[in-house]
Design a protein around this nucleic acid. Sequence first.
RNA 1: GCCGAGGUGGUGGAAUGGCAGACACGCGAGACUCAAAAUCUCGAGUCGCUUUGGCGGCGUAUGGGUUCAAGUCCCAUCCUCGGCACCA
Length: 815
Amino acid sequence: MSDYNHCAIEKKWQKIWAKNKIFESKENSSQEKYYCLEMLPYPSGNLHMGHVRNYSIGDVCARFNRMKGKNVLYSMGWDAFGLPAENAAIKNKIHPAKWTKQNISCMKEQLKALGFSYDWSREIATCDAEYYRWTQWLFIKMWEKGLVFRKSANVNWCPSCKTVLANEQVSNGLCWRCNSQTEHKDLEQWFIKITSYADELLYGHKHLQGWPEQVLLMQKNWIGKSCGTEIGFWIAGRDKKLKIFTTRPDTIFGVTFMVIAPEHELINEMKSQIVNYDKVSEYVLASSRKSNKERSSSKEKTGIRLEGVNAINPATEKEIPIFTADYVLTGYGTGAIMAVPAHDQRDWDFAKKYNVPIIEVIKGNNFGVNNCAYEGEGNLVNSGQFNDIKSTEAFDRIAQWIQEQGFGKQTVNYKLKDWLISRQRYWGTPIPMIYCKDCGIVTVPEKDLPVLLPEDVKFTGEGDSPLKTSKTFVHVKCPKCGKDAQRETDTMDTFVDSSWYYARYCDVHNNDAVFDSSKLNYWMPVNQYIGGIEHASMHLIYARFWYKFMRDLGIVKDDEPFAKLLTQGMVTLGGSAMSKSKGNIVSPDEIIPRYGADTLRLFILFAAPVEKQLDWSSDGIEGCWRFINRVWRLFYIVVNTKSVEVACQKDKDSLLKLMHQTIKKVTCDIGEKLQLNTAISFIMELVNALYVYKYHSNDDGLSLKVYETVILLMAPFTPHLCEELWQKLWHSDSISTHAWPIFDENTIKESYVEIPVQINGKLKGKITVPTDAQELEVKNIINTDNKIMLHLEGKQMLKFLYIKNEIVTIVVKNL
RNA sequence: GCCGAGGUGGUGGAAUGGCAGACACGCGAGACUCAAAAUCUCGAGUCGCUUUGGCGGCGUAUGGGUUCAAGUCCCAUCCUCGGCACCA
């Protein structure tokens, strides 16, 4: 008997898999396809347990479906552009491309050491020119479709470095490099009109039955469609209106003040009328230093009145004050609200603080009690001709009245904003646009793609986009008129790169087109997408949007890219997510030398259900190591041990039954429920049963058959071990492509079931009854059960309930 | 603040409204051993009672509710985590 040598076994099989190319896949219209996809990683340089978990789940799906006879596409790539590479360039004077390539090669080695069954011939990196060439091509198509536009937008700005900062580069309002107070600044930016697809992104949810409900809900709230009314409030004594959006037109008679965002143009326009302009502009400056999150999360709302400027409530025709307050954000609606303190808690608190009148317009029971606004429904009061009407009914009638009177109109509003994709950075896909004095904005012709990132760039962390420092990049001839022109020096948000990579996997090496649609249509949609829940509302909306755009371009045929989604839980260390930037990483390199990849994979899947957060601890890995060794030793027991006793039929029957039950449960847990932790525990139970079973090698091959089943069921989890044992069991094929075991429903069927008997909700005994027994039969059995009858003695039976094969429950009272 | 999750033994976790704690970790006992490790087998939520066969109370963050029956459904509260648009 030889010891389990994971190092040798894992290296051996990784070599064989690579040599025989068994995971490379080709389109085959006669075979059912299965596309398994994991969210592509950022090449930070080191795999952590979050990655290991993500890809272990994916590999189980891929391997399981391969054994089920499907043609599996399973690939890996790198979301290789992004901020950290540029930060490394600034700090360590290493070129972002070099840094990224080093990281990729390290992480690729780690992935290979884990034995994931990727088709490495399809690997991509979004920073490779043959990839970003097509990102640029798609961007140009988007421009041609009218989905790209330029507008001014707010960015974080460090006045000392004179550079744009990412949110991550600002902490507590200070610059990451020089600790200066940062500001907000408006810059001309590139946007993609994702809002054109807002409705479709929302209604498309009905095709996403394979998605978790919580993700759909988060997306729904993110898109934030609300039907309401846009109303213009006259500025008193001016020929000017202040436009607001409200979802509560029924409360218009209760509007006692207005609030506008500090960035609202009205402040500048009314500068000379605002009596306390100095104080107002002080407030505006202070809020420009806060992040949106800070602005909306402070419990105590602050604001300041624009003295000397009033609005007129169109319903009451009364003058009302206007405030500016930073809890009103400029990006949503019109950047201004009508405030109804009586029926909105935030407005109530604000009105109390700044001494604004509160007028009740909907009658409620506990109006004002405990300093609470009444946010429920009721009949209208103080509302002129609408008094005594129910608020639900008044909603439509007042909205209609507002429209008739010309105060405003019914409209739809979304929280979803257009997608700001330009970055003033080097390490991203260059935006393929040219500025010509005569022709304006001109796209780079297709034949000139890709627009390559230049090498001669300085990384200082200061000043404008680094691309401007290149001598070769900026100056170019206008493709239209041939005169001197300048290239766009902004690059794209990395979310653009990761919005379409799954499509490129279908046809990675295509040099003539973004992909061949026939290949894409064979593989898409992705059958199972796996990634972190943190991507619920950004990446997963961007990717869905991009796919719909490609459909409208005529190069893909479905509406949705991902049929099923699994949002895996975070792996945390000490409660917070593992990430290189936080420095709380546990690498697989710390585990594999001692325990092997198979043990690590098994452990991370066994430790918790896949969708739940998992706080990393290596306690318990010993258990998986022991289990794998048990399986290894079982080979010698099953093959060699000569039992003295002859196999007894009853034990044989129950072992066979357990085997079929286990196949059924494991197949269901992997294939349907994706409950991998319980799938593993069922296999453990079967292994335990094989250890207790006494008749190995003396039972006409039953235990050998059960053992082979164990190896097959484990193959997706611990592939190296299973390949090795499969070979030791005299098989010449690879277990990775061997057929998944099937179960027999007749063998599983039990003829008797044990069911609990409850009396007044307490468990008092158990009885064994024939499967599917009728109530009368069960009553007779209970009548012969002394223990239960003892509990019923001297009691009056009020209720007798029997749920077939489940439970008997009896309700009694004392006589 | 807003949106979305989660909270079950000493620990990770299991449980279509129907026997709470499967499977593991850790712990304890036994077997094997000169001994130890490894291995194999067995035990255990907790408190109390016990004639040592068991019996009873209490138990799924907290407080209410629905139900013959609640970890699971409803309402409220507390705590932890994820996201909030330039980290990816």
